[in-house]
Amino acid sequence: MASFPAPFSKLIEYVQSLHPEAGPLEHLMDAVITAQAQNDQSDALIGYFVDQARVSGASWSQIGAAMGVTKQAVQKRFTAGDELLPKGKAFSRFTPRARIAVAAAGRLAESAGDVMIDAPHLAAGTLADPEGLAARALRLLEIDFDQLYRELSIGPASAGDDPEPSTLLRFQYSSACREAFKDAFKAAIRLGHNYIGTEHLLIALVSGEGAVRQAFANLGIGVDLIQSAVTAEIANLVLKLKRVEGKYSGE
């Protein structure tokens, strides 16, 4: 069995290293902050494996039994799948750019006189922010955005400010769009993420059956290529971050 990743002695050393010359009270304040971060990570760790269990088909009763709590208790604490759809804590796991994408899709649908957001609207919405991972991945694949919009039979969406999650409740969503939300959650789990970004929405849309998948197929692009491009862009961003950290740490 592997050793626990953060032995108690290492946590003590870490807290003391934050401000080596500080006194006991300063160390105590650092310890409180560190403990809170550990608690947040613990919740995220358990939530990640709860999500994986749900994706594998486990029931809430089975998950509760595995955790030693009731079905009701575990459902109250972890409502990941429901939170992705417009009910309950709507869109709580969506990143700001993903929420912007949904709002942009809604405005695009309204401007076209459509009564609900459908998959093509959402696909266009994921590209509204040029710095979102969906748009970056497609640029990496040298996709002609104008040609893509023609294939989708829809115009480009315009990005706005990050909306409050509750404001997205005013939109109506097609069954294909709702299915894409669920599949985006699964795509995030496969990539080891506990959030929903534009990249997960795009992967879900191209994975599904319908107009978006066909539009990309007409351009010779399948979901495997998109997922590879997303992974490459994430790696590129991580590399840039490490370079910045190295620059300021003197490495």
Rank of each mutant, 00 (worst) to 15 (best):
P7V: 03
I12P: 12
I12A: 09
S17N: 07
H19S: 14
A35G: 04
D40C: 02
D43M: 08
A44K: 13
A53F: 14
A53I: 14
S59Y: 06
Q62P: 02
G64N: 06
A66L: 13
A66W: 03
Q72C: 04
A73V: 11
A73S: 13
V74W: 02
V74Q: 09
F78M: 12
T79V: 00
D82A: 07
D82W: 04
E83P: 04
G88P: 09
S92Q: 11
T95G: 13
R97V: 03
V102N: 13
A103W: 02
A103K: 09
A104P: 15
L108Q: 13
A109P: 14
E110W: 05
S111V: 12
A112I: 12
V115T: 01
L122I: 10
A124M: 10
G125V: 07
T126P: 04
L127M: 11
P130T: 05
G132A: 11
A134K: 10
L138T: 03
R139M: 01
L140A: 08
L141A: 09
I143G: 02
F145V: 02
L148T: 05
Y149L: 00
E151R: 11
A159N: 02
E164V: 01
E164W: 06
P165L: 15
S166G: 04
S166L: 14
A176I: 01
K182C: 06
K182W: 13
A184L: 07
A187P: 07
R190T: 12
R190F: 00
G192Q: 12
G192K: 10
H193Y: 15
Y195K: 12
L201W: 11
L202F: 01
I203L: 03
L205T: 11
S207I: 11
G208Y: 11
N218G: 02
I221L: 09
G222C: 10
V223I: 07
V230A: 04
V238N: 04
V238W: 06
E245N: 00
Y248G: 00
